[in-house]
Each structure stands twice: as structure tokens, then as C-alpha cells.
């Protein structure tokens, strides 16, 4: 299997202390300054954060992008269903931005990145799905790519039916070759793995070495970060 290396990363969450880590943005409202205001107005908070992170990690806009989110934009998607039920007309802009690839679509327009983009949802196994997809791209000749994982809370009236997902997003550049500063991403089988589904916040904690290995109970796999010796 192709080896994976974490080359660089960025994170956003208002629920952690950056403690001097410049890669982590803890602002309540991400700036979104990498995106022109006429595009930025359509993005929610996580969308602003994701676009800023992707543009910071790949200024040349030349890498493929894999984007995962468990709930996507629950606010827009689920609330639209209530509008339909109430017989109200749907907002075309909200409809357009409710699709799962909306954020990376806006990113593509703003950055001019015309490479392959993929939007993934996997019922709590998003990280495993991202890694499997990344493995596929990198085994197929791609040398570096962007992966991004983001979620936010679902609307209050759905909160009892979905796991709580605090607002957080994380983006990484993965590559097939070690270089100074990269960290090897080792994967192993974890048949006994249990616990909660992995969330973007877990990945941020993991990258900041504030927790142990990442285990995905649904996929039965564990990921560890090792310095690239």
C-alpha cells in the first residue's frame, strides 16, 4: 500500500485553545478573506474556514480536493424541508448552497482550481473514507492532494436525532514522499476499536498531539502519526 505523509495542515474551531499553534484558527467567525466578498456572502462559517484553509495550503490551486462532512449544511438542507412542508417557495441561493459539494464548488470558483473534487459523507466513518479515497488517488499517480473534513451542529430541532458535532474543520496536504517536517501516517487494523465516531475536532486534537491514535470504530482501523525518521 502507498505510504501516506502529512505534509502540512490547517484547522478551525472555536472550541479549542490554539496555545500558540498558528495552524489553528479559533475565531468565532473565520475571516474568509481568501474569497471575494460576492462569493463569501454565500458561505456559512465552516465554508469560510474551509476556503481560507484550502487556499492557504495550496496557493497555486493545483491539487485535487477530497472533502468530507457527516452532516453537510444541515441548517440549509433540513430547514428547506420545512419550507416545502409549509408550502413556501424555496430560496434558489440556499438550495444551490445546500448540496454536499457546495463549499468546494465555491472554493473552485474563487481559486480557479479545476482539478478533481470529491464530496464524501459516510455516517460517521468520514475519516476512514477520506483516507481510503486519498490512498486511491495517491496510488494512481497523484503525488500530493488536499483532504478536508468539516462539520457543524445540526439545527436545534434535529439535535435529538443526530450525534452532536461541534463546529470544526481540518484540512491536510497528504503526499506520497517524506520531506523535512512531514509526518508518516501509519494505519493499522483495530478490530477492537470502539467508541464514538471520529469528528473533525478529534483530528485537530490528534494533529496537535493532544490525544492518542485516531480509531474509527466503523472501519476497524487506527491511524497514528509518526515523525518521518
Amino acid at each position: 500500500m502507498t505510504e501516506l505523509f502529512v505534509e502540512e495542515w490547517r484547522g478551525w474551531t472555536p472550541h479549542r485553545d490554539a496555545a500558540g499553534e498558528a495552524r489553528l484558527d479559533t475565531s468565532a467567525k473565520p475571516a474568509g478573506t481568501a474569497i471575494p466578498s460576492m462569493l463569501r456572502r454565500r458561505l456559512n462559517l465552516i465554508g469560510r474556514a474551509v476556503c481560507d484553509m484550502l487556499i492557504a495550503l495550496d496557493p497555486a490551486a493545483k491539487l485535487d480536493v477530497l472533502h468530507a462532512s457527516r452532516h453537510g449544511d444541515g441548517e440549509r438542507t433540513l430547514e428547506m424541508l420545512y419550507a416545502i412542508d409549509a408550502g413556501e417557495p424555496l430560496s434558489p441561493a440556499r438550495f444551490g448552497l445546500s448540496v454536499h459539494n457546495a463549499i468546494i464548488g465555491v472554493y473552485s470558483i474563487a481559486s480557479g482550481n479545476r482539478r478533481s473534487q470529491q464530496a464524501v459523507a459516510a455516517s460517521g466513518a468520514e475519516w476512514a473514507a477520506l483516507m481510503a479515497e486519498a490512498q486511491g488517488y495517491l496510488s494512481d499517480g497523484t503525488e500530493r492532494l488536499l483532504v478536508v473534513f468539516g462539520d457543524q451542529p445540526v439545527p436545534a430541532r434535529f439535535a435529538d436525532f443526530a450525534p452532536h458535532t461541534p463546529a470544526a474543520a481540518v484540512a491536510l496536504v497528504l503526499s506520497t514522499t517524506p520531506a523535512p517536517g512531514t509526518r508518516r501516517l501509519a494505519v493499522s487494523a483495530a478490530p477492537e476499536a470502539d467508541g464514538e465516531a471520529l469528528q473533525p475536532l478529534d483530528v485537530i486534537d490528534w494533529l496537535m498531539q493532544r490525544r492518542g491514535p485516531l480509531s474509527c470504530p466503523l472501519a476497524g482501523r487506527t491511524w497514528t502519526l509518526a515523525p518521518d525518521a
Partner: peptide
């Protein structure tokens, strides 16, 4: 843009 036109029509 065109999405704005639809939104404005609504």
C-alpha cells in the same frame, strides 16, 4: 449573478 436573479424574482 444568475442565482441572484432567481432570488430577486422570488
Amino acid at each position: 449573478d444568475s442565482i441572484d436573479a432567481l432570488e430577486l424574482g422570488l
